[in-house]
């Protein structure tokens, strides 16, 4: 289980006293799980490893600290609960149960996922073969496809949020920033997605982005899997703009109509887009089809960027070699 939790500024509450009665029903629910070991603590939750007593299944319990929030239940917890309740998929973390305990804390019972893609990328003892990268990318896109067809944007895809199950399945996790696809008249905040994985429309401060912000992140993670090092590691927000366009070229009105009217599109240094040869040199081991997919995911103009359907249908996934079966992937403990 990951130890990191979303950090949010909170003001400790002083005046709100709990007046609720404990609920009988909830207490029975609390008896169904044991909290064995505290594995992490963040501002809005404490994470325990535990067991579902009826099945002896390992689970993770995220205990949301309700009483510390002056505005009631924290937004990240609300989002996580709201969206995970609607999403059941092989490649998305399973919300097993929700219950409240004796002290009226909200507990999210999640499936126990011992590893994540970040650990696997950083583990120098592991060697990645091309079918392994194909397998992880495929699982990532499948999970994301299920989010998008349900009208849900993840908005924080990065290797640390892609958890790995004991049998090697990759699962999208941490829905604390997720939201429903906006309607055309709604303003969305562009301050989403961890910096290195932030799509150009977000870098330019767009308020009307769509689900393809997640596909940009998939493209950057795909590149990271091929390179075994972060692809666009900006040191700060300004540097992120430079790093991104140095690698992929600065978008102009010609390739992305309307880009120059986005809020932060000004005094942008103009870098030329990389030639196919330059990309091939950077991603030496990658086959042509992998480069095609990566370029499709990293198209600057969000209206032209590939969606999950187009990406999943790409021949990179159907051509040989086939993706590695999850249980045979590097980092999966096999007998």
């Amino acid at each position: 289980m990951r130890l990191e939790l979303t950090h949010q500024n909170i003001t400790p509450n002083t005046d709100w006293t709990q007046t609720q009665q404990p609920l009988e029903h909830s207490q029975r629910m609390a008896d169904r799980y044991s909290k064995n070991k505290k594995v992490g603590e963040g501002t809005y939750a404490v994470v325990y490893l535990g067991t579902q007593l009826s099945t002896n299944r390992s689970i993770a319990i995220k205990e949301i600290k309700t009483e510390n929030f002056k505005d009631g239940l924290d937004m990240s917890a609300i989002r996580e609960m709201k969206y995970l309740q609607e999403l059941k998929h092989e490649n998305i973390i399973e919300l097993v149960d929700v219950f409240s305990d004796d002290s009226n804390n909200l507990n999210l019972v999640l499936e126990f996922l011992p590893s994540d893609l970040q650990h696997i990328i950083k583990d120098n003892t592991l060697t990645f073969k091309l079918p392994d990268v194909k397998s992880w990318t495929l699982m990532m896109l499948r999970g994301l496809h299920h989010c998008h067809r349900n009208g849900i944007l993840h908005r924080d895809l990065k290797p640390d949020n892609l958890l790995i199950s004991p049998n090697g399945n990759l699962k999208l996790a941490d829905f604390g920033l997720a939201r429903s696809l906006g309607t055309p008249d709604e303003n969305l905040t562009s301050n989403v997605v961890t910096r290195w994985y932030r799509a150009p429309e977000l870098l330019f401060g767009s308020r009307h982005y769509t689900e393809v912000v997640d596909l940009w992140a998939v493209g950057v993670i795909f590149a990271e899997l091929l390179l075994r090092t972060p692809y666009l590691p900006g040191k700060d927000d300004a540097d992120q703009v430079v790093v991104t366009f140095q690698a992929l070229g600065t978008p102009t009105e010609d390739i992305w109509p309307g880009v120059s009217s986005l809020p932060h599109y000004n005094n942008i240094e103009k870098f030329p887009p990389p030639s196919r040869g330059e990309l091939r040199n950077r991603f030496l081991a990658a086959p042509e089809s992998a480069l095609d997919l990566m370029c499709g995911l990293l198209i600057m103009d969000p209206n032209k960027r590939w969606d999950t359907t187009k990406s999943l249908m790409h021949h990179y996934f159907s051509e040989r070699p086939p993706p590695t079966s999850p249980e045979l992937l590097p980092g999966t403990k096999n007998p």
């Binding site: 005046d15 709100w16 709990q18 007046t19 309700t66 009631g72 239940l73 009226n104 909200l106």
Partner: peptide
């Protein structure tokens, strides 16, 4: 605030 928040749960 108490009146509004106490029933949230």
């Amino acid at each position: 605030p108490e009146q509004v928040l106490q029933n949230e749960y």
